[in-house]
């Protein structure tokens, strides 16, 4: 019930993110989620795409440092307090979250979570009947 996220190491240079998106666009790979973690000198671009294997292959061919990371994508309703309920469950069961990012559209919201212990997180979420996305 996990999905594969692309993590790409980028130096902080103007236009570098654009190069990644251009390459993916040229190969017809669409992005479903996108987040950028950064320090003063480098960043890690995190992407959820439809065709993971192909994306890795073409980015590596272009010399990018790419790796795959298991993350969990939850679908929940786009209403006040919905995320709080889910996070409450995770906290109760001691699931530590390294990072997360989220986006919403219409009535639904998607939350990408990178927990320290992926299996345990999936277990807790299934137990509280969250809907987990399974793509890629």
């Amino acid at each position: 019930m996990t999905i594969k996220q692309l993590s790409i190491f980028l130096e902080n240079k103007t236009g570098r993110i654009n190069e990644v998106t251009k390459i993916l666009g040229r190969h017809g790979i669409s992005m479903q989620a996108f987040s950028m973690a950064e320090t003063t000198e480098f960043g890690i671009l995190r992407l959820i795409v439809a065709d993971v294997d192909k994306a890795v292959e073409i980015l590596r061919a272009e010399n990018f440092a790419v790796m795959l990371t298991d993350v969990i994508c939850i679908k929940c309703s786009n209403e006040a307090g919905a995320l709080a309920t889910i996070l409450e469950h995770l906290a109760e069961k001691d699931v530590f979250i390294e990072y997360m990012y989220a986006f919403s559209e219409g009535n639904t919201a998607s939350v990408v979570i990178r927990p320290t212990d992926v299996e345990r997180c999936v277990e807790v979420l299934q137990h509280c009947q969250c809907s987990l996305l399974n793509i890629g």
């Binding site: 996220q5 993590s7 190491f9 973690a37 320090t39 480098f42 890690i44 995190r46 590596r60 440092a65 790796m67 990371t69 390294e98 990178r114």
Partner: peptide
């Protein structure tokens, strides 16, 4: 340059 195999998604580890 960081070797590809040692690149990590974890910023703390990279630092």
């Amino acid at each position: 340059e960081v070797r590809r195999d040692f690149f990590s998604d974890d910023i703390g580890r990279m630092l």
